[in-house]
Design a protein around this nucleic acid. Structure first.
Lengths: 218, 218
DNA sequence: TATATTAGCTACAATTTTGATACAATTTAA
DNA sequence: TTAAATTGTATCAAAATTGTAGCTAATATA
């Protein structure tokens, strides 16, 4: 999951950003001052940072230097539309710049753009000895590649994205095949079966009688 | 010397940009409409493009697509401060965006920033015994040059820029040919086949049934 | 325990997808 | 202009995936 660090001292703006990023599917940490942001950076790995320039304790420019050191892309947020700041930010190596007040959709677009550029979008899901890479569509068990068909891969991806969650047959069908599951259709069962067999993970995919299946996480 | 293409129909702005870029030490070509810009792009290699969005004959968005095909970074210039345009531009893959009226120093900073960002991107991609130089469009295998056609080169470049990533036929078509892949069109398959044969790398381009192809990195 | 429903299993056939080759259309070069 | 190269379409064969059918085993409930 893609992790984003937001350093912003105005709580209202921080919350607005937080909610929208989370809703979009990112994992987000908030720091209300520069010191906390730096601490978070040294303890966790982030895929992207959003920094206000004017921050208590440590300002955005200093944070930027630190982020560059760690090779994490940075987008600056600032109330000042002043050109001088923009120039300084970009010269120092910020990846982008958004001026407050900004439309949230613009921020999201820039976030996406920078992430795409950096290819930091996380795409590998691990669970026990199973590893699924969404980008390459390669599945490994104990490090050795397992050859899955298209549907099998999609099914496993759904399971691994929803570990320890009961998935109704209807839900599975809808998410993997699209459309509605017809009465008496055994397609889902059959594919679950094939997946179990290929990966030899009979015990990790539990059948929930009259409901569907559940992939046990570790 | 770094070469920049400016496509801008307002002469006053074009001149302002031209003078400042030249003064900073860049080599600059000006096009007053989209068609001339496209012609220049096909005849010369640029390191960066500055495109106005609203242009006679061919608009900035179309030029962007062409530039992306040639792997040239693009900064959009536009009079419209509208968020929608910004979003559209960034989504389509523009590297940055400057709204008119802009301070020339801000434009210069963004130019510098994008160039710096791109110069980090290697112009020669190596993978095993295969070596692809984007600028000279030369491909070598075990040090000896392999003669590829235009499409074959673009295809290989896409593969080498996306090693170990499952590329959907739709994506491949969009990125190499542009536009949408029509139902039942076998063009991608055929070119992959030809590429495999010419380079004798059958084992390095894997077919992903019902999805597309994957170039195995080393 | 009996019964009805639900899920597991196997085989097979239909469909879809891909590989290979030939050939025509178009563009580029001589 | 002619020749050569590139590019895409058509066709056929081969391969893989996918879902149905039919049977058996398991489960829940009365």
């Amino acid at each position: 999951m893609t992790k984003i660090l937001v350093a912003e001292d105005e709580e209202a703006i921080a919350n607005l950003i937080y909610m929208n990023l989370v809703k979009t599917g990112y994992k987000v940490e908030i720091a209300y001052d520069g010191k906390s942001a730096a601490d978070l950076m040294s303890n966790y790995t982030f895929d992207l940072c959003l920094f206000d320039i004017m921050l208590p304790l440590i300002d955005g420019y200093e944070l930027l230097e630190y982020a560059k050191l760690l090779d994490v892309p940075v987008i600056f947020l600032t109330a000042k539309g002043e050109t001088q700041d923009k120039v300084k930010g970009l010269r120092l190596g910020a990846d982008d710049y958004v001026t407050k007040p900004f439309q949230i959709i613009e921020l999201l677009a820039r976030v996406e753009s920078v992430l795409r550029r950096y290819q930091k979008v996380e795409q590998v899901i691990k669970s026990g000895n199973i590893e699924l890479d969404i980008r390459s569509r390669i599945v490994k068990k104990d490090g050795t590649e397992i050859d899955l068909t298209c549907k099998e891969f999609d099914l496993l991806m759904l399971f691994m994205q929803n570990q320890n969650i009961a998935l109704y047959r209807e839900t599975i069908y809808e998410r993997v095949w699209g459309g509605d599951l017809l009465e008496g259709c055994r397609t889902v069962d059959l594919h679950v079966q094939r997946l179990k067999k290929k990966l030899a993970i009979e015990q990790r995919i539990e059948t929930i009688y009259k409901v569907g299946y559940r992939f046990k996480g570790v």
